[in-house]
């Protein structure tokens, strides 16, 4: 469990990145901090491994005030995955993954063994072990970044917009990978994102942030979608634009099936409509998802 207590951060130039922020992040769940730029989400996340120290207030991990823990030691116990992978370009894939175990005194041979095992875990073929980051695709680099973050088997994994720089198809793949890993490993994951769809897909708990780290709404994705706390949240999740409102497209429908489209005109699913009529009021209408958009939208 990670707890923020009345945390503020003011930079020397007077910028107030975060003001009076309090939050409890539950253990072994994925908590997504989501907000536009300037919402202080990255600053907040970086306070957990003391890459940023709060100007006032405290951050506690399992009840321990982390300002009392030496930053280097603290960081070696917390996994960190960053936006552009942040891999060391002069080290091979296996060396990159083994960085933290090596710093913690694990022998070279053991660290390499562990790195190879981590590659299996995150779905990288072992033949890539002796390649350099520049020889990998963006998606592969991010997988290496995740493997590196998990290499010391930390309780806490921080992920700072890790998939924002890869293309949408690879991003969707990596997001599913995170969900799969989480089912296996059950880490306390703090995930920072500006993408509300990503937040709803990954988050057990979603925290919507406004300028200055103000929490606008916090809860399970379904809760936030069902009852946006205010106009800001409604705009942010796209409810007001009818982005998530579904309509039946007659043009694309065939036979007994009716195709559902979202506000952008993308087909999101099929509903069976025997005899051309929708089974309105049917307790569980037979529907099949034909894209992952419905999974992401949550309320579709």
């Amino acid at each position: 469990m990670i707890e923020f207590r009345e945390v503020s951060k003011t930079y020397p130039d007077g910028t107030r990145a975060v003001e009076d922020f309090s939050l409890v992040i539950p253990a072994r769940r994925i908590t997504v901090l989501v907000g536009s730029s300037g919402s202080g989400k990255t600053t907040l996340m970086r306070m957990i491994n003391r890459m940023v120290d709060p100007s006032s207030g405290t951050v506690e991990i399992d009840g321990r005030d982390i300002s009392k823990i030496e930053p280097v030691r603290l960081r070696r116990g917390i996994g960190y995955v960053m936006q552009n992978s942040g891999l060391l370009p002069h080290r091979t894939v296996a060396e990159n993954i083994a960085t933290v175990p090596r710093l913690s005194g694990v022998s070279r041979a053991d660290a390499r063994k562990r790195a190879l095992a981590m590659m299996d875990t995150v779905g990288l073929v072992r033949t890539l072990a002796d390649r350099y980051p520049s020889q990998l695709s963006g998606g592969q680099q991010q997988r290496v970044g995740v493997a590196r973050g998990l290499a010391i088997d930390p309780n806490i994994l921080l992920m700072d917009e890790p998939f924002s720089a890869v293309d949408p198809i690879v991003r969707a793949e990596l997001q599913q990978e995170v969900l799969r890993l989480q089912k296996e490993l059950a880490k306390t994951i703090v995930f920072v994102s500006h993408d509300i769809d990503e937040a709803f897909l990954l988050g057990d708990e979603v925290v919507v942030l406004e300028q200055g780290g103000r929490i606008v709404q916090q809860g399970a994705p379904e809760q936030i979608l069902a009852e946006p706390a205010n106009d800001f949240v409604a705009t942010f999740i796209g409810a007001d634009r009818g982005k998530r409102r579904l309509t039946i497209s007659d043009a694309a429908s065939r036979g007994d099936d009716r195709v559902l489209v979202d506000a952008g005109g993308y087909p999101v699913g099929v509903i069976a409509a025997p005899g051309g009529r929708l089974a309105v009021g049917h307790p569980s209408p037979k529907s099949r998802s034909i894209s992952n958009k419905t999974d992401q939208a949550g309320d579709a």
Binding site: L74, R75, R76, N84, G86, L88, T99, V100
Partner: peptide, 27 residues
């Protein structure tokens, strides 16, 4: 040397000396 690379090295738990000797000087 790319600031992001150094930031990552620090976030992983390298000391300032380790950052200088293992990341900055080689690059």
């Amino acid at each position: 040397v790319d600031r992001q690379t150094i930031d990552a090295a620090r976030a992983l738990g390298m000391t300032e000396w380790q950052i200088v000797l293992r990341v900055e000087i080689p690059l």
